[in-house]
Amino acid sequence: MNKQYVLKKIIYSLITIFAVLVFNYFLFRIMPGNPLQILMRNPNASAEAIEKTREMFGLDKPSYIQFFIYIKSLFQGDLGTSFLYKGQPVAQVIGNRILPTLLMIGAAEILAIIVGIFIGVISAWKRGTKIDIVSLSFSLISYAMPTFWIGIVFVTIFSVNLRIFPTSGMMTPGLSYADVIEKSSDVIKHMALPVLTMSLLLIGQYALVMRSTLVDVLTEDYITTAYAKGFKDDYVIKKHAVPNAMLPMITIIAINLGLVIAGAIQIETIFSWPGIGRLMYDAIKSRDYPLLQGIFLLITISVIVANLLADLTYGYLDPRVKSRS
């Protein structure tokens, strides 16, 4: 994989990001009526916030200058001032909430990838048997369930009835911890249900994709050749089939990021998990447009960057792409 390939991909991503900036800018301009009027109508907006936002929007200046002000502010890390958080810079508000979201999503993805791939491989191998049918049904049904609904059901079962896990939040309020381990275990207890809910959805998807990819791979000639060489079933699948089936998985993980984000918003809302998803929900509820705009930008750019990384990783791992000159 040479520099030119990498460079091309990076440039394309940058162009997309710029397009997102432009899109984001205009998106929040299509509000019917004068933006300032709408801001004024917002009961949560303090005078300070309105002044700052007026400055940020540059509403007294011509359109193209407003756009440049917008871009300039972005590069300075200024995403405006939040209404909901009474004058706090949007960037700061968001910054405080990134870690919890990353923690939850990260744990869920790792769990989902491991379990999903495992189930997918078994399904494809024992195609048509009971295991396969059960896992297929599981995938279909888990996809049909709204993520938030799964969360509610889990809360009912595990928190309310069985009392194993807490119902909400990231940490038990008011508790002081003796050390890192105690703090971590409290967080983990709170994290269990959100992560489980998120994983459920993803596991279904990953298992399904892994299964269908592997089924396709198993029809290839080189698999027949591997069998002809006298190897056992599990060797052929492990050493020949799965490595080929793993490549599309990387693409799928990237494609599923939209799903992950949608899930995060719902799950954080249900479990009051202090992350970006919950923040977006609150911002919508109180029509805090600067905050909303900032979050939207962050999320979209993150997805683009993640896609870029997945692309490059795929290019690195696939020998056919790696040696392209």
Binding site: T16, A19, V20, L27, F28, G258, I265, I295, V303, N307
Partner: peptide
């Protein structure tokens, strides 16, 4: 391609909010 990159729920939320 552009719209396929943007995560659907945030986009839907923002559009509906507006």
């Amino acid at each position: 391609n552009f719209f396929l990159v943007i995560p659907w729920l945030p986009l839907m939320l923002v559009l509906t909010a507006i």
